[in-house]
């Protein structure tokens, strides 16, 4: 079949005129898409934030390595370079005892520390691991070094946080998939109703001699436009609600923000929902029209 420019123009014009003149149906479909995608997007955002939060916590638990008193400053700096080469270690910070002492004094009451005649603290390293789940292995290796007196890690706490994060991740992925299916079904129903209302038009067009492509294309374009417009409204809803939440709730729960985990950038939400709206809108239109195209 040849597709000249005026035919393409005709199909687009058909879609736009139909959208305008089926105003109420169009609004109902757009509204359904908007609500469904807003719920989906909102859930996605919450899951993303939780996941991010869980991931941001373990690196805060560094490993403290205390050196024996007999280790010289030169040896300690050499050791720092050696530790730095370990593949699981992200960062090694050397904390000499003369720096640790005033911090310790500040933390405790000065009267107690002031009574001590000398600095009892050892030199130490503060070590960040790359992958929190490797904390135990790294600690064991550090303990085996002859210069090391003691190692303090938060392996148990890290393990708990990691397992909670894993649960959150799986609930998030499962929930997102379920919601995606539910969203598609809801949008499919909305679009199917608009097509059902116009099934006679499809029959008339068939008897006039319109090809299936000519009948289908305006419906699909309409579905895509409805999906995209619905997605944009959903973005507006999400933006509005998240502003409200951060304004009224987060201010009172400052610790959530201080725990870390950046919110998903809005343009990502916008892009994902727009593409999703267009894809679902187009796909369900093809499905809805197919039934009536087969009828004659």
């Amino acid at each position: 079949m040849h597709m000249n420019l005026s035919h393409v123009e005709f199909l687009i014009e058909e879609a736009l005129v139909n959208l305008r003149r089926n105003g109420l149906m169009t609004l109902a479909a757009i509204g359904t898409v908007a609500l469904a995608l807003a719920v989906f997007g909102g859930f996605g955002l919450i899951v993303w934030r939780l996941e991010n939060l869980a991931n941001s916590l373990p690196p805060k638990f560094a490993i403290d390595v205390f050196l024996k008193d007999s280790v010289s400053r030169e040896r300690a700096l050499e050791l720092q370079k050696q530790i730095q080469k370990h593949p699981d270690i992200a960062q090694v910070t050397f904390k000499p005892k003369e720096q640790a002492w005033p911090e310790f004094q500040k933390e405790l009451q000065q009267e107690i520390t002031a009574a001590l005649p000398y600095n009892p603290l050892p030199d130490s390293f503060i070590i960040q691991v790359k992958d929190p789940s490797r904390t135990g292995a790294v600690s064991a290796w550090l303990k085996s070094l002859p210069e090391v007196d003691a190692v303090r890690d938060a392996k148990e706490e890290v393990d708990i946080i990691l397992s909670v994060a894993a649960v959150v991740r799986w609930i998030g992925i499962g929930g997102t998939l379920l919601l995606l299916i539910a969203t598609s079904v809801i949008i499919y129903n909305a679009v199917r109703l608009t097509v059902f209302a116009r099934r006679r038009e499809i029959r008339i067009m068939q008897l006039i001699g319109a090809t299936s492509g000519t009948i289908r294309t305006p419906f699909v374009l309409e579905g895509v436009v409805q999906g995209v417009l619905g997605a944009w409204i959903a973005c507006g809803l999400i933006l509005g609600v998240s502003q409200l939440v951060s304004h009224f709730v987060m201010r009172k729960l400052v610790f959530i923000d201080s725990l870390g985990g950046a919110p998903l950038p809005f343009w990502v939400v916008f892009l994902v929902l727009t593409l999703l709206g267009a894809a679902i809108g187009g796909a369900v239109s093809v499905l809805s029209v197919r039934k009536y195209l087969q009828a004659v």
Partner: peptide, 24 residues
Amino acid sequence: PHEVPYYRRTMGVVFQDFGLLPNK
């Protein structure tokens, strides 16, 4: 089947209920 639309263009059809597209 894919040639049926072209076949139908060789005839005009009129229905009892007119069969006009309501939005046009």
